[in-house]
Simulated scan of single mutants.
Amino acid sequence: MRRGLLAVLMALPALAGCAAGAPGRGIPPACPFAGQTRQLRIELYFGLDRPDGRPISETEWRDFVAREVTPRFPDGLSELAAGGQWRDRVSNRIGREPSRILLLVVPASTDLAARVEGMTADYRRLFDQQSVGVVSVPVCAGF
């Protein structure tokens, strides 16, 4: 998924253009509901098993969110517990593991790619992960 992450991060400037309301590029020029603005929805997929099979504990996950995610995205996020499936790049085997999905809805900004990449790089390093899945979509949102 590393190539996918790079593709998403490289596409952020283009998505920012979508989020600015360019007609025919993903979302309408005006958001349909009062109080909405053009933003990006970012979904991050974190596996909770290390390569050696040891799980990433709830305490380790909470500490990661508190230290690495919240300072980068203090305005809020949603978290979902999930189960995931992926193909190991080395062994080519299908693996299954518990996971967490973080949902962020944020304005496009010049530092957004750096904040997302920094957070995912920290997770991969701290927990010996091959990748963190990242999906971004332009949306209209209001809170």
Rank of each mutant, 00 (worst) to 15 (best):
R125D: 14
L48Y: 04
D122I: 09
S136F: 01
W61F: 07
V69S: 04
V8K: 02
V8H: 04
R67Q: 13
E43R: 12
R41W: 00
W86M: 05
Q130Y: 12
R115I: 02
P71W: 05
S136L: 00
G35L: 07
L6K: 11
E60R: 11
R87M: 13
A141S: 15
P29V: 01
F127W: 12
R93W: 12
Q85A: 14
G24L: 08
I42L: 05
Y123R: 11
R38S: 14
A121K: 12
F64K: 04
R25Y: 00
P13A: 13
R96A: 13
R96S: 10
S57L: 12
G133T: 06
R125P: 07
P23N: 12
V137M: 03
G76S: 03
R115F: 01
M10G: 05
V106C: 00
A108G: 05
P23M: 05
E43T: 06
G142N: 02
A121R: 15
L12C: 03
D75R: 09
A19C: 09
S136P: 02
S57W: 10
D111H: 05
P13G: 11
R38H: 15
S109E: 13
F143M: 09
R115Y: 02
R96Q: 12
R50W: 08
R96M: 11
P28I: 01
T37K: 01
L5E: 13
F73S: 01
P55S: 15
E43Q: 13
D49F: 08
F127D: 09
T37V: 09
S57K: 04
F127Y: 15
L44G: 03
G47E: 12
E60D: 12
A141R: 01
D52I: 12
G17I: 09
G76W: 00
P29R: 02
A114F: 06
G35F: 04
C31A: 06
P74L: 02
F64Q: 05
R125C: 06
A30D: 07
D128L: 09
D63A: 15
D75Y: 06
A22D: 03
V105D: 03
S109G: 15
L12N: 00
L15M: 14
E60M: 07
W61L: 15
R100G: 03
S91K: 06
F64D: 10
L48A: 06
D122G: 11
V135A: 07
R125L: 14
S91V: 04
S78R: 00
G95S: 07
R96N: 10
A34T: 14
E117A: 14
A114P: 04
F143T: 08
T70D: 08
S91D: 08
R124S: 07
D63F: 02
V90Y: 11
S109T: 10
L80I: 15
R50F: 04
A16D: 07
L9C: 12
V116I: 15
Q39V: 01
L12H: 00
I101M: 06
L104I: 04
Y123D: 09
L77H: 00
Q39S: 07
Y123Q: 08
M10K: 14
Q39K: 14
G133C: 10
R100N: 04
P29G: 09
G4H: 13
V90I: 14
R93A: 15
D128G: 08
G35P: 03
L126G: 08
G4I: 07
T70W: 10
R89S: 11
P23C: 06
S57F: 07
V135G: 03
N92Q: 11
G133S: 05
P98I: 06
I27Q: 05
F127K: 05
I27K: 03
I27S: 01
I27A: 03
E60S: 09
G53H: 06
